[in-house]
Design a binder for these strands. Structure first.
Lengths: 341, 341
DNA sequence: TATATTTGTTCCAACGTTTGAACAAAAGTA
DNA sequence: TACTTTTGTTCAAACGTTGGAACAAATATA
């Protein structure tokens, strides 16, 4: 009991008095195999409880049907939704997915890239860790000649496919909205500007302020890792300034929550004294009081497009080596934290 | 450019005038290979940018070093924490992990089990979907002779290793606490009783009521999928009853949140009129107002133990075929939703 | 010096599947 | 009837690695 020997294609062949190659062809629906043989092979395969050995066929075909996905963490509404969407599309096409969470660590990311390459994945889909500024490991993927697709956290410099939302425009949506609510002094708790998406959000914020003839004040912009704790600390610093902001655009929902909590603790009215806008539409933004205005990133769509980009690269081999960049439209979801009614 | 041929062990052999098997042995640190040869093999391997072909060695060795993990969803604090912990332990030992999310669907779960078996994983770690009542697919794993480890959502009947917390005791902790707050009519929004963990929570709830000489009232117990929406709907039904409860023990945090929202909308004071207790310690339970009393499940510990159980099964082959059940102590985290001060 | 042991390597078969070439038999065309 | 085409199958090699058996050379033991 337990470890009975696994049935192979050879066992089926023996039962039917065929060769293994005939059985293989029958199972793969080869046109030269007779209908009769195919049927009996199927039959025997089922009887013997045959499971094809993926390793052997992957080795022979030079294709593992495994795709590596590297994300900062699965425990985030955005990433898990993208993941689900990628899974749906790729499982459909017979791919299995190896998920690795970098937890924003560059070192882990590198190790996982090595592990995935070692496992002979057919391609890698990734959203970079915040820490990552050195792309040599990603170059390694490219140099192996296997498809690399980036989403959300990407880097154009690599010249690979990228799917994300328009961060620059998101900032405009937010600033426009805050100005329409009568805000005049808008602070920005930003992500680190070495990451493209955060740089774009900062640029969008600055340009939007300029558009509305509002002055740019360096004292109102802070770069951080966008944790809840960062949000708390920076909000406290903002409150100590002689000339307080009347709105804070926070480039991440967790940090926005931290900022919100500080204001609540100090009994500063939201949004009347200070309005808050977050980014990412994490589920809790609609659950807290007041609910937080934020940006929806169309995660399902991003996942689908990412998976499709991968499939295109696989199928079309090395046909279009040009960078394929897809940028989705952001959507502003106005909630209580910025809606003065 | 791009798809240059991959270097194999053979290429290294050619460069050094050795045989492939000597190179293989050198790379695997075989005792019979001279130090000198090992060094030069390493050297050439590095120069040629050699990556061992995992597929080939897995095929030859009959071991893929891949472990399948099936969870209801990654987008949950509990599961993602368990996952991280499993990853940490197994990556350390050279395993890669294939994660599949069942989204509580029995059908998906079955498909993923097949896909994982097909991929020749060395073992499967799973937490069952709520829907799952038919275990034949899990029997299939057992019959293949590969290790199966269950956590949180498991089933003893399968006779496989199981790691979880003491649900029965959790209910006692909760009821004891509510009684100490003066609650006398405690409702229970439960999970489906065909799932072992929810059955145990229900049993614990009933026994704890009895312990405190409180009457059991069937009208106060509802089974559901424990979504936020379920929580809302059942809370509304509870409020319509002539004899309202003064506390609700909800077997999941999301449903607890739904219940909480209904009470807030109807301006029913929490915890004075009705106290709420959830289950799982999801991050949002500390973020909402009022914060929600809940049960911490020691996810990191569960993950570690689960991974270690897997390793034990792999290493000790078929040595101890007995069921190995590990039950951790739950921890009650008292917050505003039940703390009458 | 003859024999036994150790050391370093090669040889070969295997893991399970796939695939193109080869081949015989059947069917179609002249 | 002779020849081409089609159909169904077998043959053999390959994918890259591994590991036991075999073997020769070097070293140790008697």
């Amino acid at each position: 009991m337990g470890t009975q020997k696994k049935t192979t294609i050879k066992d089926i062949a023996n039962v039917l008095g065929l060769t293994p190659s005939a059985v293989s062809k029958a199972l793969n629906n080869h046109p030269r195999i007779s209908e009769k043989t195919k049927v009996s092979v199927q039959q025997v395969a089922k009887n013997l409880n045959y499971q094809p050995n993926h390793l052997a066929s992957a080795l022979r075909k030079g294709k593992s049907n495994l795709v590596g996905v590297i994300i900062p963490r699965a425990n985030s509404n955005f990433f898990s939704a993208v993941l689900q969407s990628i899974e749906d599309v790729l499982h459909e096409k017979g791919y299995n997915i190896i998920i690795s969470q970098s937890y924003e660590s560059f070192e882990k990311e590198c190790r996982y890239i090595d592990a995935l390459l070692f496992t002979q994945v057919d391609g890698i889909i990734a959203s970079m860790a915040n820490e990552t500024t050195d792309f040599s490991y990603y170059e390694k993927i490219k140099s192996k000649g296997i498809p690399l697709i980036l989403f959300d956290r990407g880097e154009n410099a690599l010249g690979v496919d990228y799917i994300g939302i328009d961060d620059y425009k998101s900032s405009h949506l937010i600033v426009d909205h805050l100005v329409s609510q009568g805000c005049k002094r808008i602070a920005h708790i930003a992500g680190f500007s070495h990451t493209r998406i955060y740089k774009n959000r900062i640029k969008g914020y600055e340009d939007a302020l300029e558009k509305h003839d509002l002055p740019l004040d360096d004292a109102l912009v802070y770069e951080c890792k966008l944790t809840k704790q960062n949000g708390r600390e920076i909000m406290e610093q903002l409150l100590e300034q002689p000339n307080r902001p009347d709105a804070v655009y926070v480039a991440g929902d967790y940090a926005a929550l931290g900022a919100l909590q500080v204001l609540k603790e100090k009994n500063i009215s939201i949004p009347d004294e200070i309005a808050i806008v977050g980014f990412g539409n994490e589920p809790f933004t609609s659950l807290v009081t007041p609910s937080i205005t934020t940006i929806e990133q169309h995660s399902t769509e991003i996942g689908r497009l990412t998976a499709e980009a991968f499939l295109r690269r696989i199928e079309e081999a090395a046909i279009p080596p040009t960078l394929n960049k897809m940028i989705l439209e952001p959507e502003l979801i106005v909630r209580d934290s910025s809606d003065k009614k």
